[in-house]
């Protein structure tokens, strides 16, 4: 049928019917297809696929290594941080002790100075009191003498005679009371 139309159309260049169903070319196509597939298969299985697999495995390895290295570095950094924090804490503690020591020293010095000053003050106070005591005693004596004299005078004025002994005894007794 197709060849009839074909002849009727007078187109000599065309093959009869659908080119895909031209069985005379099947052998040729199948032969070259098999050659092609075999070539591709060998190129792929011998060269390309192992190479790509190797490259990808290598990349995976590199990535894994890099990750491990990064992990290491991270651990190291953490350790460094810990060490730094420890050093900081140590330094702080040391500073604390130094401050405490200094404080204690100053306090001791201060206490000593205070004690000394207190002692001096006490001594001075005692001295002052002693002096006051002395002055007071002297004053008492003077008062006694003045009182004896005054009593003797008074007795004399009143016409009595009074000896010094009795007057002084009476005055002493009075002063005690």
């Amino acid at each position: 049928m197709a060849s009839e139309t074909h002849d009727a159309a007078g187109q000599a260049a065309s093959t009869p019917g659908l080119p895909q169903l031209d069985f005379s070319t099947f052998g040729n196509q199948i032969f070259w297809l098999l050659v092609t597939l075999v070539v591709i298969y060998f190129v792929l299985s011998r060269i390309a696929l192992p190479r790509i697999a190797a490259v990808m495995a290598e990349r995976q390895g590199a990535i894994t290594n890099d990750l491990a290295a990064a992990e290491d570095l991270k651990v190291k950094a953490e350790q460094a941080e810990l060490a730094y924090l420890k050093a900081l804490a140590d330094a702080r503690a040391e500073a604390q002790t130094i401050v405490a020591k200094a404080k204690a020293e100053i306090k001791a010095e201060l206490d000593a100075a205070t004690a000394k000053a207190d002692a001096e003050i006490a001594a001075r106070a005692a001295e002052g009191e002693q002096k006051i005591e002395e002055i007071r005693a002297n004053a008492m004596d003077s008062v006694k003498e003045v009182a004896k004299d005054a009593a003797a005078e008074i007795v004399a004025v009143m016409g009595g005679k009074a000896d010094a002994k009795t007057v002084s005894a009476a005055v002493n007794a009075r002063m005690k009371g």
Partner: peptide, 28 residues
């Protein structure tokens, strides 16, 4: 067209092979 004749099938299959080699062998 005989079985071993060089045809346009041969040409384009060869180009296919070359393209695959260019990408998967030269490329890598």
């Amino acid at each position: 067209v005989g079985v071993f004749t060089l045809t346009n099938v041969t040409l384009w299959m060869a180009l296919t092979v070359l393209a695959i080699i260019a990408l998967l062998v030269m490329g890598t």
